[in-house]
Design a protein around this nucleic acid. Structure first.
Lengths: 197, 197
DNA sequence: GCTATTACAATACAAATGTATTGCAAAAAT
DNA sequence: ATTTTTGCAATACATTTGTATTGTAATAGC
Protein backbone atom coordinates (compact mmCIF):
# COMPACT_ATOMS: atom_id res chain seq x y z
CA UNK A 1 0.00 0.00 0.00
CA UNK A 2 1.26 3.49 -0.61
CA UNK A 3 2.84 5.66 1.98
CA UNK A 4 0.23 6.95 4.38
CA UNK A 5 -0.24 10.66 3.91
CA UNK A 6 -1.87 13.42 5.87
CA UNK A 7 -5.49 13.44 4.81
CA UNK A 8 -6.18 16.85 6.23
CA UNK A 9 -3.27 18.27 4.32
CA UNK A 10 -4.51 16.74 1.11
CA UNK A 11 -7.96 18.12 1.73
CA UNK A 12 -6.57 21.54 2.44
CA UNK A 13 -4.54 21.50 -0.73
CA UNK A 14 -7.70 20.75 -2.66
CA UNK A 15 -9.58 23.50 -0.83
CA UNK A 16 -6.86 25.95 -1.78
CA UNK A 17 -7.37 24.94 -5.41
CA UNK A 18 -11.07 25.64 -4.97
CA UNK A 19 -10.31 29.13 -3.68
CA UNK A 20 -8.01 29.90 -6.56
CA UNK A 21 -10.61 28.83 -9.08
CA UNK A 22 -13.40 30.79 -7.43
CA UNK A 23 -11.16 33.80 -7.06
CA UNK A 24 -10.33 33.75 -10.75
CA UNK A 25 -13.65 32.81 -12.34
CA UNK A 26 -16.35 32.40 -9.73
CA UNK A 27 -18.10 29.32 -8.52
CA UNK A 28 -19.03 28.14 -12.01
CA UNK A 29 -15.40 27.30 -12.60
CA UNK A 30 -15.35 24.75 -9.84
CA UNK A 31 -15.84 21.40 -11.52
CA UNK A 32 -14.18 18.32 -10.11
CA UNK A 33 -11.94 18.11 -13.12
CA UNK A 34 -10.90 21.75 -12.83
CA UNK A 35 -10.21 21.39 -9.12
CA UNK A 36 -8.15 18.27 -9.69
CA UNK A 37 -6.11 19.99 -12.34
CA UNK A 38 -5.60 23.10 -10.26
CA UNK A 39 -4.58 21.02 -7.25
CA UNK A 40 -2.17 18.98 -9.34
CA UNK A 41 -3.85 15.65 -8.64
CA UNK A 42 -6.17 13.34 -10.51
CA UNK A 43 -9.89 13.40 -10.26
CA UNK A 44 -9.71 10.02 -8.57
CA UNK A 45 -7.66 11.64 -5.81
CA UNK A 46 -10.23 14.37 -5.29
CA UNK A 47 -12.86 11.69 -5.01
CA UNK A 48 -10.71 9.81 -2.59
CA UNK A 49 -10.77 12.69 -0.15
CA UNK A 50 -14.28 13.97 -0.70
CA UNK A 51 -17.26 11.71 -1.21
CA UNK A 52 -19.23 14.33 -3.11
CA UNK A 53 -18.66 17.76 -4.57
CA UNK A 54 -20.83 19.26 -1.87
CA UNK A 55 -18.62 17.68 0.77
CA UNK A 56 -15.65 19.31 -0.83
CA UNK A 57 -17.26 22.74 -0.98
CA UNK A 58 -18.50 22.56 2.57
CA UNK A 59 -15.03 21.64 3.73
CA UNK A 60 -13.56 24.49 1.75
CA UNK A 61 -15.98 26.90 3.40
CA UNK A 62 -15.09 25.69 6.87
CA UNK A 63 -11.38 25.66 6.21
CA UNK A 64 -11.44 29.23 5.04
CA UNK A 65 -12.22 30.48 8.47
CA UNK A 66 -9.45 28.42 9.98
CA UNK A 67 -6.84 29.87 7.75
CA UNK A 68 -7.74 33.49 8.33
CA UNK A 69 -6.87 33.47 12.00
CA UNK A 70 -3.14 32.88 11.59
CA UNK A 71 -3.07 35.73 9.11
CA UNK A 72 -4.76 38.03 11.56
CA UNK A 73 -2.42 36.88 14.30
CA UNK A 74 0.52 37.57 12.06
CA UNK A 75 -0.74 41.08 11.30
CA UNK A 76 -1.23 41.72 15.00
CA UNK A 77 2.23 40.45 15.84
CA UNK A 78 3.60 43.27 13.74
CA UNK A 79 1.98 45.86 15.98
CA UNK A 80 3.90 46.66 19.15
CA UNK A 81 1.42 46.63 22.06
CA UNK A 82 -1.59 47.47 19.93
CA UNK A 83 -4.62 49.36 21.15
CA UNK A 84 -8.07 48.00 20.49
CA UNK A 85 -8.38 50.47 17.70
CA UNK A 86 -5.21 49.21 16.06
CA UNK A 87 -6.31 45.62 16.44
CA UNK A 88 -9.74 46.45 15.09
CA UNK A 89 -8.25 48.23 12.14
CA UNK A 90 -5.97 45.29 11.43
CA UNK A 91 -8.90 42.90 11.43
CA UNK A 92 -10.94 45.15 9.19
CA UNK A 93 -8.04 45.56 6.82
CA UNK A 94 -7.96 41.80 6.45
CA UNK A 95 -11.64 41.66 5.66
CA UNK A 96 -11.71 44.36 3.04
CA UNK A 97 -10.49 43.28 -0.41
CA UNK A 98 -7.37 45.41 -0.31
CA UNK A 99 -4.72 42.89 -1.31
CA UNK A 100 -4.66 39.81 -3.43
CA UNK A 101 -5.41 37.32 -0.71
CA UNK A 102 -8.16 39.31 0.95
CA UNK A 103 -9.69 39.87 -2.44
CA UNK A 104 -9.73 36.16 -3.04
CA UNK A 105 -11.30 35.56 0.33
CA UNK A 106 -13.97 38.16 -0.20
CA UNK A 107 -14.73 36.69 -3.58
CA UNK A 108 -14.93 33.19 -2.18
CA UNK A 109 -17.16 34.36 0.63
CA UNK A 110 -19.66 35.98 -1.71
CA UNK A 111 -19.58 32.95 -3.97
CA UNK A 112 -20.46 30.73 -1.05
CA UNK A 113 -23.11 33.18 -0.05
CA UNK A 114 -24.79 32.85 -3.39
CA UNK A 115 -24.27 29.12 -3.34
CA UNK A 116 -26.00 28.92 0.00
CA UNK A 117 -29.38 29.81 -1.49
CA UNK A 118 -29.64 26.29 -2.78
CA UNK A 119 -27.86 24.60 0.08
CA UNK A 120 -29.04 24.56 3.68
CA UNK A 121 -25.81 23.24 5.12
CA UNK A 122 -23.73 25.93 3.51
CA UNK A 123 -26.13 28.57 4.71
CA UNK A 124 -26.03 27.24 8.25
CA UNK A 125 -22.26 27.32 8.25
CA UNK A 126 -22.20 30.86 6.93
CA UNK A 127 -24.73 31.96 9.50
CA UNK A 128 -22.68 30.44 12.29
CA UNK A 129 -19.54 32.12 10.98
CA UNK A 130 -21.18 35.51 10.74
CA UNK A 131 -22.59 35.30 14.21
CA UNK A 132 -19.28 34.28 15.72
CA UNK A 133 -17.44 37.06 13.94
CA UNK A 134 -20.00 39.67 14.86
CA UNK A 135 -20.03 38.57 18.48
CA UNK A 136 -16.24 38.72 18.74
CA UNK A 137 -16.25 42.15 17.17
CA UNK A 138 -19.00 43.40 19.42
CA UNK A 139 -17.28 42.08 22.52
CA UNK A 140 -14.04 43.72 21.51
CA UNK A 141 -15.73 47.08 21.22
CA UNK A 142 -17.52 46.56 24.51
CA UNK A 143 -14.23 45.84 26.24
CA UNK A 144 -12.77 48.97 24.70
CA UNK A 145 -15.70 51.00 26.04
CA UNK A 146 -15.18 49.64 29.52
CA UNK A 147 -11.50 50.40 29.48
CA UNK A 148 -12.16 53.96 28.37
CA UNK A 149 -10.78 53.68 24.85
CA UNK A 150 -14.00 54.85 23.22
CA UNK A 151 -15.46 58.28 23.02
CA UNK A 152 -18.68 58.78 24.87
CA UNK A 153 -20.92 56.34 23.04
CA UNK A 154 -24.43 55.93 24.34
CA UNK A 155 -25.14 52.59 22.81
CA UNK A 156 -22.16 50.31 22.31
CA UNK A 157 -24.26 47.60 20.69
CA UNK A 158 -25.46 50.06 18.08
CA UNK A 159 -21.91 51.28 17.53
CA UNK A 160 -20.66 47.72 17.16
CA UNK A 161 -23.39 46.90 14.66
CA UNK A 162 -22.69 50.04 12.68
CA UNK A 163 -19.00 49.35 12.44
CA UNK A 164 -19.35 45.68 11.63
CA UNK A 165 -22.04 45.99 9.02
CA UNK A 166 -20.49 49.05 7.48
CA UNK A 167 -17.43 46.93 6.78
CA UNK A 168 -19.56 44.09 5.43
CA UNK A 169 -21.29 46.56 3.14
CA UNK A 170 -18.04 47.91 1.79
CA UNK A 171 -16.69 44.55 0.68
CA UNK A 172 -18.86 43.79 -2.32
CA UNK A 173 -18.84 47.24 -3.92
CA UNK A 174 -15.10 47.49 -3.42
CA UNK A 175 -14.66 44.10 -5.04
CA UNK A 176 -16.46 45.11 -8.22
CA UNK A 177 -14.86 48.53 -8.32
CA UNK A 178 -17.98 50.53 -7.48
CA UNK A 179 -15.87 52.01 -4.76
CA UNK A 180 -12.13 52.45 -4.57
CA UNK A 181 -10.03 50.73 -1.94
CA UNK A 182 -8.79 54.09 -0.77
CA UNK A 183 -12.30 55.40 -0.29
CA UNK A 184 -13.30 52.30 1.60
CA UNK A 185 -10.36 52.63 3.98
CA UNK A 186 -11.12 56.32 4.43
CA UNK A 187 -14.71 55.62 5.39
CA UNK A 188 -13.55 53.03 7.91
CA UNK A 189 -10.86 55.26 9.37
CA UNK A 190 -13.30 58.12 9.76
CA UNK A 191 -15.67 55.80 11.53
CA UNK A 192 -12.91 54.60 13.83
CA UNK A 193 -11.99 58.24 14.50
CA UNK A 194 -15.55 58.89 15.58
CA UNK A 195 -15.59 55.86 17.88
CA UNK A 196 -12.16 55.86 19.49
CA UNK A 197 -10.41 58.52 21.55
CA UNK B 1 -47.32 34.48 -39.31
CA UNK B 2 -48.55 34.68 -35.74
CA UNK B 3 -49.88 37.74 -34.09
CA UNK B 4 -47.12 40.20 -33.33
CA UNK B 5 -46.52 40.37 -29.61
CA UNK B 6 -44.70 42.72 -27.30
CA UNK B 7 -41.12 41.52 -27.22
CA UNK B 8 -40.25 43.47 -24.17
CA UNK B 9 -43.14 42.01 -22.32
CA UNK B 10 -42.08 38.50 -23.28
CA UNK B 11 -38.56 39.22 -22.16
CA UNK B 12 -39.77 40.61 -18.88
CA UNK B 13 -41.90 37.56 -18.27
CA UNK B 14 -38.86 35.40 -18.78
CA UNK B 15 -36.79 37.61 -16.49
CA UNK B 16 -39.43 37.22 -13.79
CA UNK B 17 -39.10 33.48 -14.14
CA UNK B 18 -35.35 33.86 -13.69
CA UNK B 19 -35.92 35.78 -10.46
CA UNK B 20 -38.28 33.19 -9.09
CA UNK B 21 -35.83 30.41 -9.78
CA UNK B 22 -32.88 32.26 -8.28
CA UNK B 23 -34.98 33.26 -5.30
CA UNK B 24 -35.93 29.67 -4.65
CA UNK B 25 -32.73 27.80 -5.41
CA UNK B 26 -29.96 30.15 -6.39
CA UNK B 27 -28.30 30.71 -9.70
CA UNK B 28 -27.55 27.03 -10.25
CA UNK B 29 -31.24 26.46 -10.83
CA UNK B 30 -31.29 28.71 -13.84
CA UNK B 31 -31.02 26.44 -16.85
CA UNK B 32 -32.77 27.35 -20.07
CA UNK B 33 -35.14 24.44 -19.63
CA UNK B 34 -35.98 25.43 -16.06
CA UNK B 35 -36.55 29.04 -17.06
CA UNK B 36 -38.78 28.00 -19.95
CA UNK B 37 -40.82 25.81 -17.70
CA UNK B 38 -41.11 28.41 -14.98
CA UNK B 39 -42.13 31.04 -17.55
CA UNK B 40 -44.69 28.73 -19.06
CA UNK B 41 -43.14 28.75 -22.53
CA UNK B 42 -41.02 26.38 -24.56
CA UNK B 43 -37.29 26.49 -24.69
CA UNK B 44 -37.54 27.56 -28.30
CA UNK B 45 -39.43 30.64 -27.15
CA UNK B 46 -36.73 31.53 -24.65
CA UNK B 47 -34.20 31.22 -27.44
CA UNK B 48 -36.34 33.37 -29.64
CA UNK B 49 -36.08 36.29 -27.25
CA UNK B 50 -32.54 35.80 -26.06
CA UNK B 51 -29.69 34.77 -28.26
CA UNK B 52 -27.67 33.28 -25.44
CA UNK B 53 -28.14 32.49 -21.79
CA UNK B 54 -25.80 35.31 -20.89
CA UNK B 55 -27.99 37.73 -22.85
CA UNK B 56 -30.92 36.58 -20.83
CA UNK B 57 -29.17 36.97 -17.50
CA UNK B 58 -27.81 40.38 -18.37
CA UNK B 59 -31.28 41.52 -19.38
CA UNK B 60 -32.67 40.14 -16.13
CA UNK B 61 -30.11 42.09 -14.17
CA UNK B 62 -30.92 45.32 -15.94
CA UNK B 63 -34.64 44.84 -15.72
CA UNK B 64 -34.46 44.33 -12.01
CA UNK B 65 -33.50 47.91 -11.44
CA UNK B 66 -36.31 49.15 -13.63
CA UNK B 67 -38.93 47.32 -11.69
CA UNK B 68 -37.83 48.52 -8.29
CA UNK B 69 -38.58 52.16 -8.97
CA UNK B 70 -42.35 51.81 -9.34
CA UNK B 71 -42.37 49.92 -6.08
CA UNK B 72 -40.49 52.67 -4.35
CA UNK B 73 -42.79 55.24 -5.88
CA UNK B 74 -45.78 53.30 -4.67
CA UNK B 75 -44.37 53.18 -1.14
CA UNK B 76 -43.71 56.90 -1.22
CA UNK B 77 -47.21 57.64 -2.47
CA UNK B 78 -48.49 56.16 0.74
CA UNK B 79 -46.66 58.76 2.79
CA UNK B 80 -48.40 62.12 3.05
CA UNK B 81 -45.85 64.85 2.39
CA UNK B 82 -42.84 62.77 3.44
CA UNK B 83 -39.70 64.18 4.97
CA UNK B 84 -36.35 63.13 3.59
CA UNK B 85 -36.03 60.84 6.52
CA UNK B 86 -39.30 59.12 5.74
CA UNK B 87 -38.38 58.78 2.09
CA UNK B 88 -34.97 57.46 3.03
CA UNK B 89 -36.47 54.95 5.38
CA UNK B 90 -38.93 53.83 2.73
CA UNK B 91 -36.11 53.24 0.27
CA UNK B 92 -34.05 51.35 2.82
CA UNK B 93 -37.02 49.24 3.79
CA UNK B 94 -37.29 48.19 0.16
CA UNK B 95 -33.64 47.22 0.03
CA UNK B 96 -33.55 45.13 3.17
CA UNK B 97 -34.94 41.61 2.81
CA UNK B 98 -37.95 42.23 4.99
CA UNK B 99 -40.76 40.91 2.83
CA UNK B 100 -41.04 38.27 0.19
CA UNK B 101 -40.32 40.45 -2.79
CA UNK B 102 -37.42 42.31 -1.25
CA UNK B 103 -36.00 39.01 -0.13
CA UNK B 104 -36.14 37.73 -3.66
CA UNK B 105 -34.47 40.87 -4.95
CA UNK B 106 -31.71 40.70 -2.41
CA UNK B 107 -31.15 37.07 -3.25
CA UNK B 108 -31.05 37.80 -6.95
CA UNK B 109 -28.66 40.68 -6.40
CA UNK B 110 -26.18 38.55 -4.48
CA UNK B 111 -26.50 35.79 -7.04
CA UNK B 112 -25.60 38.21 -9.79
CA UNK B 113 -22.81 39.52 -7.68
CA UNK B 114 -21.26 36.10 -7.45
CA UNK B 115 -21.97 35.48 -11.10
CA UNK B 116 -20.11 38.65 -11.98
CA UNK B 117 -16.78 37.18 -10.97
CA UNK B 118 -16.75 35.24 -14.19
CA UNK B 119 -18.47 37.84 -16.31
CA UNK B 120 -17.15 41.31 -17.05
CA UNK B 121 -20.38 42.64 -18.49
CA UNK B 122 -22.40 41.64 -15.47
CA UNK B 123 -19.81 43.20 -13.21
CA UNK B 124 -19.85 46.44 -15.17
CA UNK B 125 -23.61 46.63 -14.93
CA UNK B 126 -23.55 45.99 -11.21
CA UNK B 127 -20.89 48.61 -10.71
CA UNK B 128 -22.90 51.15 -12.63
CA UNK B 129 -26.00 50.32 -10.64
CA UNK B 130 -24.22 50.64 -7.32
CA UNK B 131 -22.70 53.94 -8.24
CA UNK B 132 -25.98 55.39 -9.40
CA UNK B 133 -27.76 54.25 -6.28
CA UNK B 134 -25.06 55.52 -3.98
CA UNK B 135 -24.93 58.86 -5.73
CA UNK B 136 -28.70 59.32 -5.50
CA UNK B 137 -28.58 58.41 -1.82
CA UNK B 138 -25.68 60.73 -1.14
CA UNK B 139 -27.37 63.61 -2.95
CA UNK B 140 -30.55 63.06 -1.03
CA UNK B 141 -28.73 63.32 2.27
CA UNK B 142 -26.85 66.37 1.08
CA UNK B 143 -30.09 68.10 0.18
CA UNK B 144 -31.46 67.25 3.59
CA UNK B 145 -28.40 68.79 5.22
CA UNK B 146 -28.85 71.98 3.25
CA UNK B 147 -32.51 72.26 4.16
CA UNK B 148 -31.72 71.80 7.83
CA UNK B 149 -33.22 68.37 8.28
CA UNK B 150 -30.01 66.82 9.58
CA UNK B 151 -28.40 67.18 12.94
CA UNK B 152 -25.09 68.95 12.94
CA UNK B 153 -23.05 66.60 10.80
CA UNK B 154 -19.52 67.62 10.02
CA UNK B 155 -19.01 65.47 7.00
CA UNK B 156 -22.11 64.70 4.99
CA UNK B 157 -20.20 62.49 2.55
CA UNK B 158 -18.98 60.32 5.39
CA UNK B 159 -22.50 60.18 6.84
CA UNK B 160 -23.92 59.21 3.45
CA UNK B 161 -21.33 56.48 3.01
CA UNK B 162 -21.95 55.14 6.48
CA UNK B 163 -25.68 54.95 6.00
CA UNK B 164 -25.53 53.47 2.53
CA UNK B 165 -22.93 50.83 3.22
CA UNK B 166 -24.40 49.97 6.60
CA UNK B 167 -27.56 49.04 4.75
CA UNK B 168 -25.63 47.08 2.13
CA UNK B 169 -23.88 45.21 4.90
CA UNK B 170 -27.12 44.28 6.62
CA UNK B 171 -28.65 42.63 3.58
CA UNK B 172 -26.63 39.43 3.31
CA UNK B 173 -26.55 38.50 6.98
CA UNK B 174 -30.26 39.22 7.29
CA UNK B 175 -30.91 37.02 4.29
CA UNK B 176 -29.20 34.00 5.80
CA UNK B 177 -30.64 34.59 9.23
CA UNK B 178 -27.41 35.64 10.92
CA UNK B 179 -29.32 38.70 11.95
CA UNK B 180 -33.03 39.14 12.50
CA UNK B 181 -35.12 41.51 10.40
CA UNK B 182 -36.16 43.34 13.53
CA UNK B 183 -32.56 43.89 14.59
CA UNK B 184 -31.65 45.13 11.14
CA UNK B 185 -34.48 47.65 11.15
CA UNK B 186 -33.53 48.76 14.66
CA UNK B 187 -29.94 49.40 13.64
CA UNK B 188 -31.13 51.44 10.67
CA UNK B 189 -33.66 53.43 12.69
CA UNK B 190 -31.07 54.22 15.34
CA UNK B 191 -28.75 55.41 12.63
CA UNK B 192 -31.48 57.58 11.15
CA UNK B 193 -32.20 58.96 14.62
CA UNK B 194 -28.56 59.97 14.90
CA UNK B 195 -28.59 61.66 11.51
CA UNK B 196 -31.95 63.43 11.35
CA UNK B 197 -33.49 66.00 13.63
C1' DG C 1 -55.13 35.96 -52.71
C1' DC C 2 -50.39 35.34 -52.28
C1' DT C 3 -46.05 35.94 -50.10
C1' DA C 4 -43.29 36.95 -46.32
C1' DT C 5 -42.85 37.04 -41.58
C1' DT C 6 -43.40 35.73 -36.88
C1' DA C 7 -43.90 33.14 -32.64
C1' DC C 8 -43.27 29.64 -31.09
C1' DA C 9 -42.25 24.13 -30.60
C1' DA C 10 -39.52 20.21 -31.04
C1' DT C 11 -35.42 18.07 -31.61
C1' DA C 12 -30.44 17.17 -32.41
C1' DC C 13 -25.90 17.53 -31.00
C1' DA C 14 -21.51 18.13 -28.72
C1' DA C 15 -19.71 19.03 -24.51
C1' DA C 16 -19.47 19.02 -19.70
C1' DT C 17 -20.54 17.19 -15.25
C1' DG C 18 -20.80 14.38 -10.86
C1' DT C 19 -21.01 9.84 -9.39
C1' DA C 20 -19.44 5.23 -9.63
C1' DT C 21 -16.27 1.59 -10.53
C1' DT C 22 -12.13 -0.89 -11.37
C1' DG C 23 -7.24 -1.39 -11.39
C1' DC C 24 -2.51 -1.16 -9.78
C1' DA C 25 1.60 -0.66 -7.35
C1' DA C 26 3.68 0.28 -3.17
C1' DA C 27 3.73 0.41 1.73
C1' DA C 28 2.00 -1.35 6.22
C1' DA C 29 0.68 -5.15 9.06
C1' DT C 30 1.05 -9.77 10.42
C1' DA D 1 7.15 -13.76 2.93
C1' DT D 2 2.42 -13.03 2.45
C1' DT D 3 -1.68 -10.52 2.89
C1' DT D 4 -4.01 -6.37 3.50
C1' DT D 5 -4.40 -1.66 2.94
C1' DT D 6 -3.84 2.75 0.86
C1' DG D 7 -3.43 6.48 -2.44
C1' DC D 8 -4.03 7.39 -6.18
C1' DA D 9 -5.26 6.98 -11.66
C1' DA D 10 -8.16 5.96 -15.35
C1' DT D 11 -12.38 5.19 -17.21
C1' DA D 12 -17.43 4.46 -17.75
C1' DC D 13 -21.87 6.09 -17.49
C1' DA D 14 -26.14 8.64 -17.15
C1' DT D 15 -27.60 13.09 -16.96
C1' DT D 16 -27.75 17.79 -17.94
C1' DT D 17 -26.68 21.83 -20.49
C1' DG D 18 -26.42 25.60 -24.06
C1' DT D 19 -26.35 26.22 -28.80
C1' DA D 20 -28.10 25.21 -33.20
C1' DT D 21 -31.45 23.82 -36.50
C1' DT D 22 -35.73 22.72 -38.66
C1' DG D 23 -40.67 22.86 -38.97
C1' DT D 24 -45.37 24.71 -38.77
C1' DA D 25 -49.30 27.37 -38.57
C1' DA D 26 -51.16 31.79 -38.28
C1' DT D 27 -50.96 36.62 -39.09
C1' DA D 28 -49.30 40.93 -41.50
C1' DG D 29 -48.28 43.32 -45.64
C1' DC D 30 -48.88 44.05 -50.39
Amino acid sequence: MPKVVDHEERRRNIAEAVYRLIGANGMDAVSLRDVAQEAGVSMGAVQHYFKTKDDMLLFALGYMRERVLPRLQSALDKLPDPTTRERTRAAITLMLPLDKQSTQEATVNIAFFANSFGNKETQAKLREGYRALYEASRQSLKDAAESGELRSIEDVDQAAAELFYLVQGLIGPTLIGAMSKKEAVTVVDNKLDALFR
